[in-house]
Amino acid sequence: MVAIRIDELTKQFEAFTALAKLSLEVEQEEFVTLLGPSGCGKTTLLKLISGFLDPTEGTIHINGKDVTRTPPEARDTALCFQSYALFPHLTVRENLEFGPRQKRISAHDRKARVDDVAEKLSLHAQMDKLPNQLSGGQQQRVSLGRALVMRPSVILFDEPLSNLDAKLRDQVRIEIRRIQKEYGLTAIYVTHDQNEALAMSDRVVVLNGGRVEQIDTPEALYHAPKTRFVADFIGDANVFSGTVQGEVQPGLWRVETAMGTYDVATSTPPKEKDVDLCWRPESAVLGDAGHTGKVINRAFQGHFTDLMIETKGVSYRVQSRATSAQEGDTVNISIPPEQLILLERTA
């Protein structure tokens, strides 16, 4: 069942379009991440869903109900703020109880809910402390708890981990995912960290300049990016412009690039002659076949070695698990046809 349906949502700030005709459906209990560079409209979309902004055009449905003009206090969403936004003069317990109080939930139920959440987030020892007496990670958990006690249909996160240090970040990330599954919550999660997005999400929405670039599972985004932006943004990618020569075998297309000719295995024939050709640094095979290149930089990274290689004046990146190539060596590189990805040329 669809939990959130967003149709052609547009948000303009005066002449500036922050979000353009965005459509998205989120399934019940799905964890969807909004990923994109700074200023691409992630927070704007989250504020539109939670009701803090009114869309210029388009509609939002939550559980089949049109909430486009419903104010935030009446929406069945709960927001986890980047800066936590805990009420500083209230104890952890009072912070957690604030929401249920507003909903006039009986004292008994309120206590049950708060205790349940405190238990799940291991906060019971902190219940009588003020927020400024807690560590960053604990504050983060209170903020999550305050949203959870509302038992919302949809929980929204705006870069909840950005104030935590790297180690804690992994831990809280796993915790958020666990809680989301345990409560069966539908979640929309904003981040500009691709690793976070890939690790946590059922699906990722890649945004760029207020437009959707691609909506897909993390695996599909990585292995089958649709645009150059997605290929570049998710993981490392070598992207070259090329021209389609034609289909040499069924499902195998020949593409001419500055570095040489490649055969690309694809089930969807290219729409245009001008394409971008993309491959991941780790899909290159160093061996006897393929075109030659000169190693211009080598960096040992432990479980792989990072090489910068130059062919015909074009440099690109190759990651290899076992190579003895040194700087200045000449190597042969081939890329299996099924590892090559054709991207639509975008203006």
């Binding site: 939670s50 803090f52 104010p71 935030p72 206090e73 009446a74 969403t77 709960a78 927001l79 703020f81 800066s83 936004a85 805990l86 009420f87 604030f98 929401g99 507003q102 909903k103 305050r146 509302m150």
Partner: peptide
């Protein structure tokens, strides 16, 4: 702080 106002609102406060 605006985020305190927003947080209260988000939690259903009048």
């Amino acid at each position: 702080r605006q985020e305190h106002i927003d947080a209260a609102r988000d939690l259903g406060a009048s």
